[in-house]
Amino acid sequence: MSDENPPRSRWSDLERPPLNATALRRALLGSDSLYTHLEVVGSVGSTNSELADRARRGAAQPGTVLVAEEQTAGRGRLDRGWSAPPRSGLFFSVLLAPEVPAERLGWLPLLAGVATAGALSRTAGVDTALKWPNDILVTVGGDERKCVGILAERVGEGPQGRPREGALVLGIGINVTLREAELPVPTAGSLQLAGAQGTDRDPLLRAVLRSLEDWYGRWTAVDGSAGESDLQEAYAAGCATLGRHVRAELPGDRALLGEAVALDGQGRLVIATGEGVQHPVAAGDIVHLRPAGGA
């Protein structure tokens, strides 16, 4: 006798259809495209870890895009976890090898933030704000909530221990249709909760990758100059962190309090203390960046 109420599969949510890998490849790959290969997998621990491992083995070349319907061990900065139900978001990584001076590589996650925020605003019709260094915020019920996390990591050594010079994986995670009860923390949000006009993941992913390609092309064409590519101006214009009083928690239980006043030429956040001293702080030096007096 058949079961009238079969168990609900974690993949059977009809409101969350799978991505169309064939259509995505047709739209995004081409002889003049940044992207050379695109793969959609059902589940993976972390798209960044998987793509970096493939690159080290020589099994992935720059321009490769790896997309997962689910991440079981997604990571943010400092190995903080990033979890979401299957097909509830966009979880993907891109292998890149930017030929720019090493001191300008810190702009890559900021570039990804500008590209992603602009694409989501245009395609989903939501207001977005950049939180330095690697988050994008949306407004849910009057509160700013994290909707996007970005992580850029060096690939490291390749075959026979040879380093892959300049290769990085750029990972982006976007909460698309997460419901309130599914949020991992109260400060998280999603495009759907922010009132998005559309949550179809295929056009969202195409828009983000095209925007990323555009900004990456501008940036690398001028040797990674954030000024000449207009990246520095664009990031500052969309950054909710600037102008606010913040508390930067640093390694060794140290803290820096002051107003976030600018971004310098290397993408560092400049914090002006009450004594009038300006301190540039790099993303890699920060444990937490919070509103002054915030939890």
Rank of each mutant, 00 (worst) to 15 (best):
G217K: 00
A282H: 10
G238E: 14
V67E: 05
A27L: 03
G217P: 00
D285G: 04
E39Q: 02
N48L: 02
S190D: 05
S121P: 08
R164G: 06
T22Q: 10
L130P: 13
A221C: 04
Q192F: 10
S211E: 14
D127K: 09
P163R: 06
A255D: 15
I174R: 05
D127A: 06
N48D: 10
T220C: 01
D143R: 07
I271R: 02
R162A: 04
E233P: 08
L205E: 13
D135I: 05
L170F: 15
S83M: 05
D3W: 13
F91Y: 14
G76V: 04
Q266F: 09
E213Q: 14
A255P: 15
Y35M: 02
H288R: 13
E15Q: 13
V176N: 01
L212I: 15
T116N: 09
R16N: 13
A60T: 02
P109N: 04
L14Q: 14
E165Y: 03
R218Y: 00
G274F: 07
R80D: 02
T72V: 03
D223P: 05
P7I: 07
P184Q: 00
G161K: 11
T128M: 09
V40Q: 01
V114F: 07
Y35I: 05
R54L: 04
L29R: 09
P203D: 08
P6G: 04
D53Y: 00
L212C: 13
G243P: 14
P86M: 03
N134L: 11
E4A: 13
V281F: 08
V40C: 02
G274P: 12
L151C: 01
C239V: 11
P6K: 00
L34H: 03
W215V: 12
L269I: 15
G238S: 14
K146T: 12
A234V: 13
G158R: 06
L28M: 08
P251M: 11
Q160N: 11
A188M: 10
G161Y: 09
Y216I: 00
E39C: 00
L250A: 06
D223Q: 09
S121W: 09
S93H: 04
A221K: 00
W107M: 10
E153K: 03
R75L: 06
G173F: 03
L256T: 12
V41E: 03
R75W: 03
R244N: 14
A236D: 09
L193K: 12
S49Y: 05
L137Y: 10
H37D: 02
E15H: 12
G227Y: 13
L212W: 15
I172A: 12
G106R: 08
G89D: 06
E39A: 00
E165D: 06
E153N: 09
R80F: 00
A23P: 07
D223F: 03
G158V: 07
L96K: 02
L96D: 12
S190T: 14
Q278E: 15
T220M: 00
S121N: 05
A119S: 12
S190M: 07
R87Q: 15
A119D: 14
A248T: 15
D223Y: 07
P159M: 02
L34K: 01
A248R: 08
V100C: 01
R218G: 00
G171H: 11
A112D: 10
K146A: 07
S33N: 09
K146D: 11
S49V: 09
S93A: 04
L137T: 11
